[in-house]
Design a binder for these strands. Structure first.
Lengths: 339, 339
DNA sequence: CTGTTAGCGCATTCAA
DNA sequence: TTGAATGCGCTAACAG
């Protein structure tokens, strides 16, 4: 495999000249630049990024700590969308993207930082209080969050306003005459751990109830479609007045849809359903579900851009991005009489 | 950030001794080993993988070229499952996983190889004739395939027997009395490009028709759910006898399901449906669909294992893995009278 | 505008 | 069982 030395010899110049021609950090005359380029092409030379990284103490790769959920069977299309956003931005900017599913404790983060392979880190599934964030802050390592902590005003993050999102949903349902609404949240473990969306959805649901006068039934979900279905069924048998349900993710929503289908009811005729999901995901379900918009691909994209901007020493274009809440109507809600 | 030199100083030994203590490639006395370990712990030392990679000319990271589809809006849960398999195995073995969505041409592959950041490569969406495979072979770079070419007997690959899978489906339908079956394949572009599953499903469908005497209607899909639905509807209006449909992926199947739901029919009462998908994906759909098993997570796992075995110089435990075809009944097919 | 050279942090050969 | 010294391929002073 050709090295920079061989390129230099072939072009009849010093190695540093080749290096500078490549990086553009020093002017190089057109004539020599062309000879160098010719040598590069003939040899099929590509710089060794390890050597470069060692010399510069920076790396053209970023790391993504993968959601815990990935290790379970509980794969969600939306996690994948976050992913697509991050990956595409990284590739477009010439960065490699490293994926990690190891436990994301303090030790692993320190390790990752010191290993030097990645120059920055993107964190997902952020908690309202998150020790990982504290550590990264302390280490001074570049990072960006998809999600945010309660004290992340000074950090680079992108998130969506979940609390307002679920309030939008409640107002929408209130206008349609619904008086009894169920909410299937993420599993209790996540809520207890302070997982942002779980906490903020619940908070928004409660303030939304107060605002709309709707009577709410909160039922923690359990992650899987089956368990969400079972949960909903028991809730519904206890409270037959429930005419609408809001579900925290599309996996659980699929469970509810399937249950409804199996017991012979129809959405929205017999039940209104709203899900927290991306538009693409929500509209692809059977039936399509009206959704509190979680623009996963966009969030991944913005997170990656924020991080790469930092790494490139550019002024970071955005920071602290809290996307406004939105509701997209896919026809899964319907007016009820009387309530 | 502590280096190996600092560890050596603190432990009062030579740098090489620390290195050997870490790698175990040379005996180190218990006493010094312990002093070294103490120094490592106190300093919070982690070896710099770039420096290590530069010195050894090997890297503890592998690369995955991401499916083209990822760059479109056409995200599939199953791609994600392949992914989860690969990622988890990599992490468990202490390997980083690098994701690339750049165009996967000859140039990019050469580049990736020479850059030295990854020690091996996993290729997905393999074509029956695939120039990327030829190049990698020629370069002598370690790689594994998820999918296979027509001449890959000597390669490391994992794939599933798609042709036999669709024949299983046809036999199953034949036993239930179906005489007119539609098949919605991957988009023509993929078929023309020689994309393995597209080619082999079609081939299996045709031999399966001959074997069962079923009358088949092949309609190329177009990737999206909407277009698959439209395609199926036109097929059905032209051939009202169609009582069952086989669909090449779950995205298109969702389109068909939704259409069926919208026009007021039921699965399987009015239409039998079989999809090529993983069990988890198929059973989560509304309604759950009987599936030709595509064990995506397992395939990702096996592919990564094969590659890492190679890299570690271990005897590769498996190679040339063509998983047997299977059909899982999720109740979306039903006996028809008369045919 | 270009050349010379000292590291970056580690593995490994050669000596002891 | 251990130490000293060389080099992996590249960048970035320093020198001209």
């Amino acid at each position: 495999m050709p090295t920079i030395v061989e390129v230099a010899e072939r072009a009849g110049v010093a190695v540093s000249t080749v290096s500078y021609a490549l990086s553009g950090k020093r002017p190089v005359s057109d004539a020599t630049r062309q000879r160098i380029q010719a040598a590069i092409d003939e040899l099929g030379y590509h710089p060794n990024v390890l050597a470069r990284g060692l010399a510069t103490k920076r790396s053209q790769a970023i790391s993504l700590f993968y959601p815990m959920a990935m290790q379970s069977r509980n794969l969600s299309t939306m996690q994948f969308e976050f992913f697509a956003g991050v990956t595409n931005v990284a590739s477009q900017n010439g960065y490699g993207l490293l994926l990690w599913t190891t436990p994301q404790d303090e030790f692993q983060i320190k390790r990752l930082v010191q290993e030097g392979m990645s120059g920055g880190l993107i964190l997902m599934e952020v908690k309202t209080q998150d020790p990982r964030v504290d550590l990264l802050r302390e280490l001074g390592f570049p990072f960006a969050l998809i999600g945010h902590t309660d004290d992340s005003a000074d950090l680079h993050y992108v998130d969506v306003d979940f609390a307002e999102g679920i309030r939008l949903a409640l107002r929408h349902l209130a206008e349609l005459g619904h008086r009894h609404v169920a909410f299937i949240n993420f599993e209790p473990i996540l809520l207890d751990a302070g997982f942002g969306p779980a906490v903020r959805l619940l908070e928004g649901f409660e303030t939304g109830l107060a605002e709309t006068g709707i009577c709410g039934y909160v039922s923690p979900g359990t992650g899987t479609a089956d368990e969400a279905a079972a949960t909903f069924q028991s809730l519904r048998s206890q409270h037959p007045d429930i005419s609408a349900v809001i579900v925290a993710n599309e996996i659980m929503a699929m469970g509810v849809s399937r249950l409804v289908y199996q017991i012979g009811l129809r959405i929205p005729d017999d039940l209104s359903v709203i899900v927290v999901a991306s538009d693409t995901t929500a509209e692809r379900l059977t039936p399509p579900l009206t959704n509190i918009v979680l623009p996963a691909e966009t969030m991944g994209r913005i997170g990656a851009e924020m991080l790469i901007d930092q790494l490139e020493g550019r002024e970071v274009r955005k920071k602290n991005v809290l996307l406004a809440a939105e509701l997209t109507d896919h026809g899964s809600t319907r007016r009820v009489e009387h309530g």
